[in-house]
């Protein structure tokens, strides 16, 4: 018996390894919470090293990144042009709304609710080592009041939400992540649905619409809806680039190009608390408030 084991030790070891690993794969595919918090602890332990490397990367990588981005520059340029158009129209819309808003506020004699937004600025210190999972570690944690479930934004739009937090760091799941889902709606037609992350390489998100025959067309802006579980409503997610029927033609899905450039994410803001209703955070609208 022992000679049998000795003779076949290599295949036995390999089969055992494969079995154990497959078990852990199927287990972790179902259970998420603990696995994420464990990796968050690693992120916290490594955060001084990550932060210093990130600082070095910020300083030195600026030149190199231009070379690295040569492949995507042209596409990015076109996308930026589109975004610029979107922003210009949005700015107009915003200034109109602002005016109307302030008039109404004056009528109602309410204090400026923008001041009720509580944001914490944080720096991105590391990303997920697997390129198909899109999470990142930021340098603020429960000590600064951050809790899992809080939305993370930048002036350009929605970044993601906090999924795990330690006292000094937290892990943020980007909207690009295949597991991410955000309640969203079309600004023009109010068509509602869920924006799911697809994979970072396609550089788009999937907007799955609830209604059978929704009114949606390329160029529409997509924002977080008031049904969203984690996000304040009215935050820009992106712009519809393509509308397609899903399999069997039962529902329609739209491809959404995210408003945030995830390549150059260095500083983000975590929304600690926000007033209810459709008010925008003070970082929006080019400082009009």
């Amino acid at each position: 018996m022992s000679s049998f084991i000795f003779r076949w030790r290599r295949p036995i070891i390999i089969i055992l390894v494969i079995m154990v690993v497959s078990l852990s794969l199927s287990y972790t595919a179902k259970v998420r919470g603990q696995v994420v918090s464990f990796s968050n602890i690693i992120g916290a332990v490594m955060s001084p090293a990550s932060a210093s490397l990130t600082f070095l990367g910020n300083q030195a990588g600026k030149g190199i990144s231009t070379v690295g981005q040569l492949f995507t520059l042209q596409r990015e340029n076109a996308a930026l042009h589109q975004q610029l158009l979107l922003y210009q129209s949005m700015k107009l819309e915003l200034s109109e709304l602002n005016q109307e808003n302030s008039q109404l506020r004056g009528l109602l004699d309410l204090k400026n609710s923008a001041s009720a937004w509580k944001l914490v600025a944080a720096a991105v210190i590391s990303r997920n080592p697997d390129s198909w999972f899109q999470t990142m570690v930021i340098n603020r944690g429960t000590r600064d009041g951050i809790r899992p479930g809080m939305a993370v934004i930048v002036p350009q739009g929605v970044v993601g939400r906090v999924i795990s937090a330690t006292p000094v760091s937290s892990t943020v799941m980007l909207v690009l992540d295949p597991d991410s889902g955000v309640g969203a709606q079309d600004v023009r037609s109010q068509a509602a649905g869920v924006v799911n992350g697809r994979d970072p390489l396609s550089e788009t998100l999937t907007f799955q619409l609830f209604s059978h025959r929704p009114d949606i067309s390329p160029g529409d802006a997509v924002v977080t809806s008031s049904y969203s579980q984690y996000y304040p409503s009215g935050l820009l997610i992106g712009q519809v680039s393509r509308v397609s029927k899903s399999a069997y033609g039962l529902t329609e899905t739209a491809s959404v190009v995210p408003a945030v450039n995830f390549n150059q994410l260095q500083d983000v803001m975590v929304v600690l608390s926000h007033p209810g209703g459709a008010t925008l955070p003070p970082i929006y609208g080019g400082g009009a408030r």
């Binding site: 090293a49 990550s50 490397l53 070095l56 910020n58 190199i64 590391s126 990303r127 994979d199």
Partner: peptide, 25 residues
């Protein structure tokens, strides 16, 4: 491995675009 992962998670994302970050393991 630790050094490789550190470089891969903290340094490489500044050089390579999202999704193209190579693996050092």
């Amino acid at each position: 491995d630790v050094l490789g992962l550190l470089v891969q998670t903290a340094l490489f994302p500044h050089v390579f675009p999202v999704g193209y970050v190579p693996n050092l393991i």
